[in-house]
């Protein structure tokens, strides 16, 4: 897939970026296979044009929108975010996109809209993992993720359409994906075709598959271990081979606590995961 250069407002950051090659070849996108190298191998033919996103549920404006039009609503900006996977590794990625909240406000969600539910494309013809349970890791597709309306409206929550200056490659969730930097990576759903405003909390994919391992909130928290491994520290996927590896201590809310901790002041469940 050919990636197009984007026009965007550049960002400054003192974080060490993960090399582009690693960002685009180390992906969890089970629709294209469960090995992290699979998506880069099997996703290249994904058809991302034309692309529509269906808006539904508790909002005044609903319907189907062309991605080209959605892209005209807000200027693109670069956001350099830490990404922390629930598997205890991390990257730093220069995303390009716009704030999800700015997009959602256009649809005028009603007071009943307590949650925002996202769905990934369901197209077994294009996605081998959806054709075959072995290839897809036994997940029920389509992949579904959700946020509370407050999380969705938070200025850090990004709808990304690019990385490293160009449009997203398919393996990273082209053409449009979510990025929620204070949550484990599986919350940041890829290749979105549907956004639904809901009154009730949705059933989400990984939480449904293993509720004791993956919570609905899934906020990065070093003091809450995954049942099978510690979350206290993380291995940095950076440049260099096995002799130049680094670990770092995992930060609460992945280091974005100052901005987002207030979202959870009344919610006990969050302390678990």
């Amino acid at each position: 897939a050919q990636r197009q250069p984007l026009n965007y407002q550049r960002a400054e950051s003192n974080l060490d970026l993960t090399p582009e090659k690693k960002v685009t070849t180390y992906n969890n996108f089970y629709e294209f296979g469960t090995d992290k190298a699979d998506p880069a191998k099997h996703a290249q033919a994904l058809k991302t044009k034309p692309w529509q996103v269906a808006i539904s549920g508790e909002a005044e404006i609903t319907g189907s929108f062309n991605l080209e039009d959605i892209l005209k609503w807000n200027p693109l900006e670069e956001r350099i975010y830490r990404l922390r996977c629930v598997e205890a590794w991390s990257m730093v990625i220069p995303w390009i996109g716009f704030s999800l909240g700015d997009m959602l406000k256009r649809f005028k969600p009603t007071s009943k809209a307590k949650y925002v539910v996202f769905k990934t494309l369901h197209d077994p013809a294009q996605m081998p993992g959806q054709r075959n349970r072995w290839a897809g890791g036994g997940i029920n597709y389509p992949y579904v993720e959700g946020l509370t309306i407050a999380e969705a409206m938070h200025p850090l929550t990004l709808m990304a359409v690019g990385l490293y200056g160009k449009t997203l490659p398919p393996q990273n969730g082209a053409p449009i994906r979510l990025v929620v930097p204070w949550k484990y990576g599986f919350k940041s759903i890829k290749s979105i075709v549907s956004i639904h405003f809901s009154e009730r909390r949705p059933r989400t994919t990984w939480h449904d598959l293993a509720p004791n391992e993956y919570g609905f909130f899934a906020n990065v928290n070093p003091s809450v271990a995954h049942p099978r491994w510690s979350q206290a520290s993380e291995r940095i996927i950076g440049s260099g081979g096995i002799f130049s590896q680094k670990r770092r201590d995992t930060e609460l809310y992945n280091g974005y606590g100052e901005q987002v901790a207030s979202l959870y002041s009344g919610i006990k469940e969050n302390h678990f995961f």
């Binding site: 690693k22 960002v23 070849t25 180390y26 190298a37 996927i237 440049s239 081979g241 096995i242 590896q245």
Partner: peptide, 10 residues
């Protein structure tokens, strides 16, 4: 060792 074994050689 030479970082030519995928994105995460470890």
């Amino acid at each position: 060792a030479i970082d030519d074994l995928g994105a995460d050689p470890v």
